[in-house]
């Protein structure tokens, strides 16, 4: 998994690629919690367009990010979900709890 952060005003955008699994989800979790809990960014956006695979540990990292965002009053947004990620989120019945958009433009809109 590769993760790169961009900043757009008060928004952090993470461009994530590759596989999010037991080996890589701790890296994602750490990056999300730093941005939300330590830096208290008002909006954190995850570009998942290049993610090939996600497992339950990856979903757990997203849930932790969502919970941290609620704790600090930030928005936590996902976009670019491919079929694989949508299937896993639907299987977890968690797809409805996330704020999900089709593209970056919608995700960073005021």
């Amino acid at each position: 998994m590769q993760i790169a952060a961009r900043h757009l005003d008060k928004i952090t955008i993470f461009d994530i690629s590759g596989d999010i699994d037991l080996a890589t989800s701790p890296q994602l979790r750490k990056a999300l919690l730093r941005e939300l809990r330590e830096l208290k960014m008002p909006r954190v956006v995850l570009n998942l367009g290049a993610v090939r695979y996600i497992d339950s540990s990856g979903v757990a990292s997203l849930v932790e990010g969502l919970k941290a965002s609620r704790d600090v009053g930030s928005r936590f947004i996902l976009f670019g979900l491919n079929k694989t990620i949508r299937e896993v989120l639907q299987l977890s019945k968690l797809v409805r709890i996330f704020e999900i958009y089709e593209n970056e433009e919608q995700s960073v809109a005021p």
Binding site: S56, L91, S92
Partner: peptide, 18 residues
Amino acid sequence: ALEDVRPGGLGLHFIRKS
């Protein structure tokens, strides 16, 4: 229970559903 929104505990559910 899937209604319990928290990290972890999904793996076995995924296996059984798949």
